[in-house]
Design a protein around this nucleic acid. Structure first.
Lengths: 141, 141
DNA sequence: TCTAAACTTGACCAATTTAGTCAGGTATGT
DNA sequence: ACATACCTGACTAAATTGGTCAAGTTTAGA
């Protein structure tokens, strides 16, 4: 199981952005340079973040992006949801009528995978952008 | 982030096997039928489980596979390790000399991803096959 | 008003990974 | 001997990933 780079980049970019958020809009170009992420790719990512109302855009010269919420209200869940990162441990959920594998009952380990999903999602739900900025400021010398 | 079907199948198969383990060797054919997993695929998976000494094989007629350890000593970690499932949240670990992204320092969210990996791996380390069998017996009516 | 900075959108693509299949074996209990 | 079951490696179609590329639109500032 691995995290997509899209999700990783989204979080990195938002942490970067959040550090300057109070001062002025941050351009993707700057984030691209500072974080070493392709500009074109960042554009795709921020388009999604905007649709999900995590950031606002300001067009034109001196424009850029700004957070649309308090960093404390932006959880990892929200970010991941925005860029379509999903925690998938089972294939068998959607076929609700039948059980898993086309059998009549739930597959033998179904509960386990549910538990695992909850375990991971809990982590995402409890972690906010605020936490990450604080952490980052702490580790800067 | 999703779990590979290989890992899921490995766990399903081992739980299935564990239920009959005391009585007689379980053939992959039976597991295949009961769990709806392709026989050829199961063979690949069990080859790895055997190399990692999680199961033993008994060849010939009436042969099959048997657990090689106490179910309590087989953790999810062991199973996943055997089938090459890895929890990867960062690309940046291997390049140890430089930091991430070819920068001099760790990427801004490095600690976060480490935390996440640990969070997930902890779950895997604490869950044994024994737990799953017990659970499964409980849910059988 | 002109221009450059910055956002916006959508098509496209190469490489990798996944989730297997297929085709041959070899060992052994009856 | 023969059927059952393990064993091994090559192969592959489809999906996903991790982007690039091209062609815009908007707006601040000179």
């Amino acid at each position: 199981m691995k995290l997509s780079s899209k999700s990783r980049y989204a979080v990195m970019a938002l942490v970067d952005l959040a550090r300057f958020d109070d001062i002025y809009p941050v351009s993707l170009r700057d984030i691209s340079l500072r974080q070493g992420i392709s500009l074109d790719y960042l554009e795709q990512i921020f388009s999604k973040l905007k649709k999900n109302e995590i950031v606002k855009s300001i067009r034109g010269t001196q424009g850029g992006y700004v957070l649309n919420k308090n960093p404390n209200d932006i959880k990892l869940t929200n970010i991941f949801h925005a860029v379509d990162e999903k925690v998938k441990t089972v294939q068998c959920k959607k076929e609700s009528k039948r059980g898993c594998n086309g059998k009549a009952t739930k597959c033998i380990t179904h509960n386990l995978w549910d538990e695992l999903e909850i375990h991971i999602n809990t982590f995402f739900e409890n972690k906010s952008l605020e936490d990450l900025i604080r952490n980052n400021k702490q580790t800067r010398v």
